[in-house]
Amino acid sequence: MDRVRVLVADEHRIFAESLATALSAEQDVEAVAVGSVPAAQHLLERIRSTHETPFDVLLIDADLDGAVAPANGTPPLLTTAHERYPAMRTVMLAAHDDAGRAAQALAAGASGWVAKDSSLARLLTVVRGVLREETHLSPTLLTGVLRELARDRRHRDEHQRLVESLTPRELEVLRCMLAGLGRKAVAERLYLSPHTVRTHMQNVLTKLGVHSTLAAVALARRAGVSPAE
């Protein structure tokens, strides 16, 4: 019988270990617990480098710092997990329902949002279900999540239209800004003068309707613009 490997990441280590132990009591489940995003990322990296059997499902504490949004300059755990193991499914473990955060997690690739106080039988149903490409949300959360996703789609479409108003050179400059390059570095990369780069940057801000580089970068990310390599 193939065993389902589950990684539980929760800042409440006792909860994580208790849940991992309960899941591992099932004949077809093997679960491991970690207490932070860095610990989870380190474990995933070690498995990849040593060619160990990867995890099938990642259960993440929805309140864990760095789970969905970047923290301390590092990519969120959801992003790292999907980049390294595209086949691995992720499910958010939440203390309470939050349509906005659930929609953000689903948009980032999560396959479900489940209450932490769910029964073990419910969690096992979710773990096995997401491996069958199912998405798991409570009925009371579903309407709010669909509303949030529709609103985000409208905003993303508007952001994409703003980005499409940029010239090819302005788009190059914006991608450099996304990569964290300053004016001098952008000038060297694109073989332009700093003055020309400043003009392009100002044009980018004007066309995107923002007043700072940080706001332009945030809008570009929401529009799906990729940073310069």
Rank of each mutant, 00 (worst) to 15 (best):
R3N: 05
R3L: 10
R3T: 08
V4M: 11
R5C: 00
R5A: 01
V6D: 00
L7C: 01
V8S: 07
A9R: 04
A9E: 00
D10W: 12
D10N: 13
E11V: 11
E11D: 15
H12G: 06
H12T: 11
H12P: 09
H12M: 13
R13E: 05
R13G: 08
R13C: 08
I14C: 03
I14N: 04
I14L: 15
F15C: 02
F15S: 06
F15M: 07
F15H: 10
F15R: 09
A16Q: 10
A16K: 14
A16F: 13
E17G: 03
E17T: 11
S18Y: 14
L19N: 06
L19A: 06
A20V: 01
A20H: 02
A20F: 07
T21E: 12
T21I: 09
A22T: 09
A22H: 09
A22D: 04
A22G: 05
L23D: 03
L23S: 02
S24A: 00
S24D: 00
S24H: 05
S24Y: 08
A25Q: 14
A25K: 14
E26N: 09
E26V: 00
E26R: 15
E26A: 09
Q27K: 15
V29N: 04
E30C: 09
E30D: 12
A31C: 11
V32N: 01
V32A: 07
A33N: 01
A33E: 00
A33R: 06
V34E: 03
V34C: 01
V34Y: 03
G35V: 09
G35H: 15
S36F: 10
V37N: 01
V37S: 02
V37P: 00
P38A: 11
A39N: 02
A39V: 03
A39G: 01
A40M: 06
Q41H: 07
Q41M: 03
H42F: 15
H42W: 12
H42M: 15
L44P: 07
L44M: 09
L44E: 00
L44R: 02
E45L: 10
E45Y: 07
R46G: 04
R46A: 05
